[in-house]
């Protein structure tokens, strides 16, 4: 297929992500199994219904545990708090930016379990038990990530507001193998809007990291 989606070759099938299951479900599996082993089916179903784990309903400000940049953090937040607002308002991780707040600009891009997502369109409560990486988690101490270095070298920004999202997206884009040509990198970086129009320099930065062989 000759397109900017896959300029050279068709990719290997990617593995569907396996949603994390909650521990108490695993524990409850045994109870459910026992219940279904009951000799009379209708009784078993009634018993299973009685013993079946019912996930709790969470309302109002409630404790949530989020693993961010390798560290477990606990916040008190309502279920309606997005991951973006949890990062910025509850954890002072203001590197992740709020642009449109509707999944149209990419400024809020973070990685969840290694995949880039828009943190404005997911709830914090849904991201418990997952590995969340933000722009603050890219550098190792004072050593910047190669994508950060490349953005500085190529002047991949003007006002800088979209930059954390561009960098998080760029890191993922290279890792996914979607930055192998200019056209492909442009297509697969299209979820990150830059109002200043620094696109040529952003592209140069992403392509340089890809060509350096760094896979992050």
């Amino acid at each position: 297929m000759h397109s900017d989606l896959f300029p050279d070759a068709q990719p290997e099938a990617s593995q569907p992500s396996d949603g994390s299951r909650r521990t108490f479900m695993q524990q409850a599996g045994g109870i459910l199994g026992f219940a279904l082993a009951s000799p009379i089916a209708s009784q078993a179903e009634t018993l299973a219904q009685k013993l079946a784990p019912v996930n709790p309903v969470i309302s109002g400000a409630s404790p949530m545990q989020l693993k961010i940049n390798g560290t477990m953090r606990t916040i008190q937040a309502e279920p309606r708090v997005t991951l973006l607002d949890a990062l910025r308002e509850h954890l002072d991780l203001t590197g992740t930016k709020k642009g449109c707040d509707h999944g149209q600009c990419g400024a809020c891009t973070v990685h969840v379990d290694g995949r880039r997502i828009n943190s404005c369109l997911t709830l914090a409560v849904m991201n418990q038990g997952k590995e969340i990486t933000t722009i603050e988690g890219l550098a190792k101490g004072d050593a910047l990530h190669p994508m950060q270095e490349a953005f500085i070298k190529h002047d991949g920004f003007q006002c800088g507001y979209c930059t954390p999202g561009q960098i998080m997206s760029g890191v993922a884009c290279v890792k996914e193998g979607h930055a192998t040509t200019d056209g492909q990198a442009r297509e697969w970086m299209s979820g990150n809007i830059c109002r200043c129009g620094a696109y040529p320099n952003i592209l140069a930065a992403v392509r340089e990291v890809e060509q350096s062989g760094f896979k992050g």
Binding site: M1, L5, G103, G106, R115, R116, N118, G191
Partner: peptide, 29 residues
């Protein structure tokens, strides 16, 4: 995952393309 799946690509290229030309990589994830 569906858009880049090998089975989908081989048997239903139009479906793969419809997915990968939609939205953005972040939203598709």
């Amino acid at each position: 995952d569906v858009g880049e799946n090998k089975l989908v690509l081989e048997q239903f290229p139009a479906i793969s393309e419809s997915l990968l030309l939609a939205a953005s990589p972040q939203l598709r994830n």
